[in-house]
């Protein structure tokens, strides 16, 4: 696992649900076929209301029309990120779109499990509310050893909660790799 992740931030509000992350009409695509799975990148975060898409001003698409990847690898969310359905397509869509890490105040249980157990994106919790302190497009850097987010644009630093129990699963790659490493499965 890389120890430093950096790139442009994309800022969202509270309660970003899985229907906003990947609308149900797109769940028909294969998650393994190389061409079909690109569609998950194309439609990642496509149902976020435009006024809330890319705060503080909104109006920014996470993935531009006709593209399959985002220019914002770091998502800054609020409370209860990923609430709603159990669709693993949600963290998968973010991974395909190029999301590396999410920083949110809190997560819904199933989204959090899916992100970790499938090894799709790192779901970090921030100590303080950050989606009113960072602007979409800010260059940010995350240090996974120090659990710190640095806003390079403004030169501010914010603490993140250590990943704790889930770190070994993230380091292994996913739940299966972790289970193999710990001799739980062959």
């Amino acid at each position: 696992m890389e120890k430093i992740l950096e790139g442009k931030a994309f800022v969202l509000s509270n309660n970003v649900d899985t229907d906003q992350i990947i609308p149900a009409e797109h769940l028909v695509y294969s998650l393994s076929d190389p061409e079909e799975k690109k569609m998950y990148g194309k439609y990642a975060l496509s149902s976020v209301p435009m006024e809330k898409s890319g705060l503080p001003n909104g109006g920014i698409k996470y993935v531009e029309a006709e593209k399959f990847e985002t220019e914002f690898p770091i998502i800054i969310g609020g409370a209860n990120f990923g609430c709603g359905s159990s669709r693993e397509h949600a963290p998968f869509a973010l991974q395909i779109a190029g999301t590396k890490v999410i920083i949110a105040e809190s997560y819904a249980r199933i989204f959090f499990r899916n992100a970790v157990d499938g090894g799709f994106v790192i779901p970090y919790e921030s100590v303080d509310k950050l989606n009113d302190k960072i602007k979409t497009g800010d260059e940010v850097q995350i240090n996974l050893e120090k659990n710190v987010l640095k806003n390079v644009t403004t030169n501010e630093e914010f603490k993140l909660k250590p990943l704790g129990d889930i770190l070994p699963i993230l380091e292994a790659g996913n739940l299966f790799e972790y289970a193999r490493q710990t001799d739980m499965i062959a």
């Binding site: 998650l31 709603g84 359905s85 159990s86 669709r87 693993e88 199933i110 499990r113 899916n114 157990d117 499938g118 996913n174 739940l175 299966f176 289970a179 739980m184 499965i185």
Partner: peptide, 28 residues
């Protein structure tokens, strides 16, 4: 499916998981 919690009406533990967790259960 997230609404798997419905079955809890029967005095049982029921909850939703994603595909990876379900695949793990399927094998183990």
């Amino acid at each position: 499916d997230s609404h798997t919690c419905t079955s809890g009406a029967f005095g049982m533990f029921a909850t939703g998981v994603g595909n990876t967790d379900a695949a793990f259960i399927l094998g183990t």
